[in-house]
């Protein structure tokens, strides 16, 4: 049987991590191809509902990444986001949702190599956890829809 290839959605901010991921490419650093990037204006915009949507649509893991503290393009979006992540992560864990499947990182526009490492580590970890069937099976998501979109 082929090795399980997890589907991972990365929510990143426009100014640091997205640009950092771009640098990964222009520096020709290779990394795992399991990650689909969704670019948002700021970490402050990465609402927890987006993460839940990703899982509901069949993601096995999620990466959330933005500017390092004190580097936010909008000064404090990442500070506010961090408080919400602290509570959200704890709440998920309290409800028995597998919070290990959400990976948080700070990746700056200059850290192309770090992005590759974040992605590779995330893929390795999520692969070890296996498909997130527990969540996918909550609602009858059509199997055909899943195969079609699983890439």
């Amino acid at each position: 049987m082929a090795e399980f290839e997890p589907k991972i959605i990365a929510f990143v901010c426009n100014w640091c991590t997205y640009t950092g991921a771009d640098l990964t490419g222009t520096s020709r650093i290779k990394h795992a191809t399991n990650v689909r990037i969704i670019r948002l204006p700021c970490t402050g915009r990465i609402d927890f509902m987006l993460l839940m949507k990703a899982f509901a649509r069949g993601a096995d893991g999620v990466i959330v990444s933005g500017c390092h503290p004190n580097d936010c393009h909008y000064t404090s979006g990442n500070f506010h986001a961090r408080r919400r992540w602290i509570l959200f992560r704890s709440l998920l864990n309290f409800m028995g949702v597998d919070a290990r499947r959400i990976i948080f990182s700070w990746v700056s526009a200059a850290e192309g190599a770090k992005w590759a490492e974040v992605v590779n580590t995330a893929v390795k970890e999520i692969r070890a956890l296996g498909p997130y069937d527990e969540y996918k099976n909550l609602a009858p998501i059509r199997a055909s829809w899943r195969t079609e979109h699983a890439g």
Binding site: N70, F79, R82, R83, W85, I86, L87
Partner: peptide
């Protein structure tokens, strides 16, 4: 976050502690 804020999610400290962000 402690108890000093009226509304903890409208505030932050630059050194809020967490142990999960890489």
């Amino acid at each position: 976050f402690g108890e000093e804020e009226d509304y903890a999610l409208a505030a932050f400290k630059p050194d809020d502690k967490e142990d999960f962000i890489r």
